[in-house]
Amino acid sequence: MENAKWIGMQLLRMAVLLAAVTVTVFVLLSLSPIDPLTTNVGQTALGSMSGEQVERLKEYWGVGTPAAARFLGWARDFLRGDMGISLLYRRPVAQVIGERFFNSVWLMIWAWLLSGFMGFGLGILAGRKRGGTADRLVTGYCLLTASTPAFWIAMVLLMIFAVWLKWLPIGLAVPIGTAADEVGLGDRIYHMILPALALSLTGISSVALHTREKLAAVMESDYVLFARARGESERSILVRHGLKNIALPAMTLQFASVSEIFGGSVLVEQVFSYPGLGQAAVTAGLGSDVPLLMGITVITAAVVFGGNTAANILYGLIDPRMRKGRKKG
């Protein structure tokens, strides 16, 4: 009963969030100064067209229809499960997203795991002894990468590993000129290394800095002091008290970083011409492909929300203070 109520609340919150996000995106798009006709058809082409053709194009891109009417039309279809047809790709939005989602998720999971584990490890190394050599090195590295934009790192990696060293491909998710069914797993991984690395590099610093801060606080806590007074070794303190007490915040952070990785993927995919959701979002935004952008927005918001909810659930399951507290209350 208690659980059913909680799940209901979460679903309601998600619905409200999605509604708010879609409205916001729609308003922003309708305020956008981009004229879909000039952008997608081109000034010259438009000039050579007859008035009738231009009218048809205007109707296709929804120019002239009030924004509210367009939004309601989109929302009605969406609630029926129809995400519409992408105006640029001329294919169902669901299909475009499905394809790109696969590419992106693949990339993001790697980046997510990489930044999570590396960040956690570096954070522990630094936080064990605040002000130590390891701490200064890790913090320095983190501040450096945290203040560097992801797309710039992506370009630097591209220059070093793809252009100069020629170890890795310069872009795309699969080799050029290969039939789709000939693309193997190896090819995909080969193409994914650089974007995943670029995406995780900045993520590492945020996870590492947060983990360091938490661990340093734990190591300076009263209970660690008491553990020392009881003759526990520093190693045992780290394992028995430290890791346990930073596991929870680290987990929350890890799930919360889903949104950061999603955000970063937009730029990184653009740099590597990687055909993922992020790149599609840029294309859709610049080309006023409303149905596609709305679809991507909804999916992204749902995934990020899912990440945060997962953190909430795990927290409740693992932390005795929350678990027992809930039972009592």
Binding site: Y223, R230, E232
Partner: peptide, 28 residues
């Protein structure tokens, strides 16, 4: 310390919040 020389601290903050009491009294 922890053997002949022991400290009795002042408050609950000296206990690990995520470890059961028995485990802490036995000290591993």
């Amino acid at each position: 310390r922890g053997r002949e020389l022991v400290l009795v601290p002042q408050s609950v903050s000296y206990l690990d919040p995520l470890m059961r009491v028995g485990e802490q009294v036995k000290n591993g």
